[in-house]
Write a protein that binds this DNA or RNA. Structure first.
Lengths: 219, 219
DNA sequence: GATGAAGTACCGACTAGTTGGTATGTATTA
DNA sequence: TAATACATACCAACTAGTCGGTACTTCATC
């Protein structure tokens, strides 16, 4: 596991190509030749770096974890002093990421695990690591927000973190079905509203306000 | 479109096989030969009834709509007098369906649309029809529950119906990643709690109750 | 009510192209 | 000089789809 100096070699070009191609076509429909063409390398290079297509799938999921991990670690929502603001800031950040075409904002591992959960255990595990690891980055803030309010609810911080990932993954599926990000944004709005209600930021559970006030764009 | 008497012919056996096989392996990884073997028919029969694999994909999505449509139309939650009870009954019914192995309770069209949204428009449209059509069956009850309380919230009945589908689809992805239904059940619990909070059935938005009271199994 | 024409449902061998993977080579670097 | 990092040619297996054929049903006609 000693790492040579990072450079744009065939391996990382293949991994970057995999993120783009698999998100658009799915894992099974993506061929090795296609990946090589997208990365501008030959098949010999592919099988020099990966023993099989499935091994690339695992590496692509890990690469996805690294890439998105860095993106979220550097995101501005961590700067909020209040833990609930950090949680809501995370949700707003996720909504702000809904830019470009559908393949640009959807999730690689959510796509891959659907196709491989029953046939390629190594890929399923890598996808689970990616999703669960990302969810884990939310737990501390959720627990802090709970502790601040002396809450002992029937749900756990962990389950709320995973639920937020479920909403996002499901939102991506609806966006794919409808061909646009709007439906995903609506679902993220519902997630935000749920969290606000859970933590009592919205004092009235039955919302009687008019439609003028919007939830969007608070980051 | 005249319908001969229904019988277990090759076409319907292929469609039933498609539901099972595609849910387990995904659309692209499912081969025509495999489908034929699972249905106990020959390749000649397959291409007699479907001009291509993609045409079977569309027919499978429509068959899924028919099958699940009948299941939900006959479900007991419609019998509740109060519209909010019908909505919560629907959620409980969805939770109760989480039985058997992961391929048994997950959604065909949610799986298929991930692989085909960018490459097979006809299948994407069929999946969208299935998801959106199912969500539409919830709208009247949501609107009735809103009207009963004189609510004019910033969200629409339609968006809440679609959000519930997003939660379910995302719950299935997490279940596939983790290899079990528990995480999906937790997410459905969060969905139920959200709806209760939205409609004011839980008077306290910050839930201070102990963990003894459970949400499950109210149907 | 026998006959034949025409359609439907299905069979299974076949093919042209594609697939993941291999074998063997060479240039570059440590 | 010994790995490492590629490149090229190749292959066996598989893939969706084809094609000629068979069995059965329907239905009008003689």
């Amino acid at each position: 596991m000693s790492r040579p100096a990072a450079r744009p070699d065939a391996r990382s070009r293949l991994l970057d190509a995999a993120l783009a191609v698999i998100r658009a076509k799915g894992y099974s429909a993506t061929t090795v030749d296609e990946l090589c063409a997208a990365a501008g390398v030959t098949k010999g290079a592919f099988f020099h770096h990966f023993r099989s297509k499935d091994e690339l799938g695992v590496a692509a999921a890990d690469h996805w974890s690294d890439t998105t991990g860095a993106l979220f670690a550097g995101a501005p929502y961590h700067r909020h002093a209040d833990p609930l603001d950090r949680i809501l800031g995370y949700v707003d950040f996720r909504k702000a990421l809904l830019e470009g075409g559908v393949p640009d904002f959807t999730c690689l591992v959510g796509t891959m695990v659907q196709e491989t959960y029953d046939s390629v255990p190594a890929i399923r595990d890598a996808c689970d690591r990616s999703i669960s690891g990302h969810a884990a980055t939310l737990v501390a803030d959720i627990e802090a927000a709970m502790a601040e309010r002396g809450m002992t609810p029937e749900w756990t911080a962990q389950s709320l973190a995973l639920h937020s990932q479920a909403v996002l993954q499901g939102a991506f599926i609806l966006a794919k079905a409808k061909g646009g990000a709007e439906v995903a944004a609506d679902s993220i709005d519902h997630l935000r509203r749920y969290i606000e209600l859970l933590f009592g930021r919205r004092p009235e559970s039955i919302d009687r306000e008019g439609p003028a006030r919007t939830v969007a764009g608070r980051l």
